[in-house]
Simulated assay, not measured.
Amino acid sequence: MEFLNNLLFGIYPYIAIAVFLLGSLIRYDRDQYSWKTGSSQMLESKMLRKGSMPFHIGIIAVLAGHFVGLLTPHQVWDFLHITAPMKQVFAMAMGGFFGLICFYGLTILIIRRFTNERVKASSSSMDNLILILLYIQLILGLISIFVSTGHMDGAEMLKLMSWAQNLVTFQGSHAAAAIADVHIIFKLHVFLGMSLFLVFPFSRLVHVWSVPVKYFRRNYQIVRAKTGW
């Protein structure tokens, strides 16, 4: 069991992140034509509008929360006089709120993907797989909130923080040890999260890299009406 734990939570994350970064770079270099969202808005727009916004708002907030919550050293929270139980309650509240928003939007998008014949026909196997993986991951995250109510001391949260922070400092064995005895729901959530990084470069998720930041600083375009000669 110790070997499996080290493999899944001390080695596998590095494999997933390496594929995530190198795969994205290679795909951008070799196959830029496929670097797109693959929008199906022209095929069906009503359900897309209804589900896309809450999904994106929810998932961006959830990812930001995970990033800050897991990678901020506990000394920072101590300096701010935020105890582990306080942080856990806040994480559960905000994670639950934005997780449900994301769940609402993603549910609509999945129903649309698998029930609208035109959208379904234009979907690839990877499109369907990504939606299902995201849905399972989101459900696991929401279930983990209920699991967390059984231990409000923040102990398991600190172990997950230790896992993430040891990973980014390239101490894989310490990371695996930190997460060894956490609840199975958290382990499944972590493993599936790493697996999403693994399949990222082979899916339409690569469009995340192409956030249109330049639009905020570009000059306005002046459009003049065509006049007669």
Rank of each mutant, 00 (worst) to 15 (best):
L4N: 06
F9N: 07
Y12N: 03
A16D: 02
I17Q: 01
A18P: 00
G23Y: 02
I26L: 14
R27G: 06
Y28G: 07
D29K: 12
S34Y: 14
W35A: 12
K36D: 13
K36L: 10
S40H: 14
L43S: 12
R49S: 15
S52L: 13
F55D: 09
G58K: 08
L63T: 04
A64T: 10
F67G: 07
V68C: 08
H74K: 07
H74R: 11
P85F: 07
P85R: 12
M94F: 13
F98V: 09
F98A: 07
L100S: 06
Y104N: 01
T107S: 14
I108E: 01
I111D: 00
I111T: 00
I111Q: 00
R112W: 00
R112M: 05
E117R: 15
A121G: 15
A121T: 03
S123R: 00
L131I: 00
L138A: 12
I139V: 09
L140W: 03
I143F: 11
I143Q: 02
I145G: 06
V147D: 09
V147S: 04
T149H: 01
M152Y: 13
D153R: 01
D153I: 06
G154T: 07
A164M: 05
G172Q: 01
S173A: 14
A175L: 12
I179S: 05
H183R: 05
V190I: 14
G193Y: 05
M194R: 02
P201I: 10
V206R: 04
W209H: 09
V211W: 04
N219Q: 14
Y220L: 03
Y220H: 05
V223R: 10
